[in-house]
Simulated assay, not measured.
Amino acid sequence: MKTFCSWSGGKDSTLALYHGLKKFKVDYLFTMLSEDGIHSRAHGLPKSILEKQANSIGIPLITKCSTWGEYEKNFLDFLEEYAKGGMGIFGDIDLQEHLDWVENVCNKKNVRVFEPLWRRNRREIVEEFLKLGFKAKIIAVKKDLNIEKYLGKDLSFDLISEFESIGIDACGENGEFHTFVYNGPIFKNPVDFEIGTCVEKSKNLVLEIK
């Protein structure tokens, strides 16, 4: 039975993997890339950075390229090839439509679903992440929130409190911000990276990480 972790490179998938490794041997990290094969579909991290994360963690990274329209088909192709009859680890928290999609798609390939963060308190999830010693940077924020000053900052207890004081969810579960994890207890060594320029996307401002 093969086990994989759906990998964004951010805090939620990292914490989900941390809990998964306590229970299972994890064979792969899986990331869906945009159709150009350069950046992750969800968070916009370059494939080279995702590979550095995987190398430091010591788990092979599998990627596929996809448009949003072909996402489910390509995800099913991955399950068929690498995880049919196995298990997937996911970092969903409380968005029911995300869980429904995961369970529906995985069921088609007889893949069991492990969701260690599901229905946990959002603030407690981030606090656990930080208490465990993980390090993450804010790499994307919603354009319409005017919070670009937080780009490039490390996630911290003080930053969480500041976010909440201005109405930003502690986990960014409404898409307010995204993170890039570069060190922590499952990493053999810190990920080597540089921060580049800020790029404007359709809904987000994104820091280039290389």
Rank of each mutant, 00 (worst) to 15 (best):
D169M: 01
A83K: 07
G133K: 12
V102E: 05
N121R: 15
E148N: 08
N121K: 15
K188Y: 01
G86K: 13
V141R: 02
I160Q: 10
S161V: 07
D158A: 13
L76Y: 00
E162C: 08
N74M: 07
E72S: 09
K73Y: 10
R122H: 11
L130C: 12
E103Q: 10
E176Y: 00
V111Q: 07
F90D: 00
G167N: 01
T179S: 08
E164Q: 10
D100L: 09
T197A: 09
E115Y: 14
V191Q: 03
H98Y: 00
L79D: 07
V141Q: 06
L61R: 11
G196V: 06
F193M: 08
V141W: 01
I138E: 04
F134K: 01
C106R: 07
F157N: 11
E194H: 14
R122M: 08
F177Q: 05
P185A: 00
E72R: 11
W68R: 15
N107A: 11
K137W: 10
I160S: 13
G133P: 04
I93F: 06
I139F: 01
K137N: 02
F187R: 05
I186F: 04
D169N: 14
K143R: 15
N107P: 02
F134Y: 05
S66E: 10
D94R: 01
V181F: 00
F75Q: 02
I139N: 03
Y71K: 09
I160T: 03
E194P: 10
C106F: 04
F78A: 09
F75H: 02
L155S: 09
K142Q: 14
I62D: 04
N189K: 08
K84E: 14
K153L: 12
Y150G: 05
E72M: 13
P116Y: 04
H178Y: 05
I166K: 12
F78Q: 07
G175K: 10
L99K: 09
I195Y: 13
W68Q: 12
L145W: 04
K84W: 03
W118H: 12
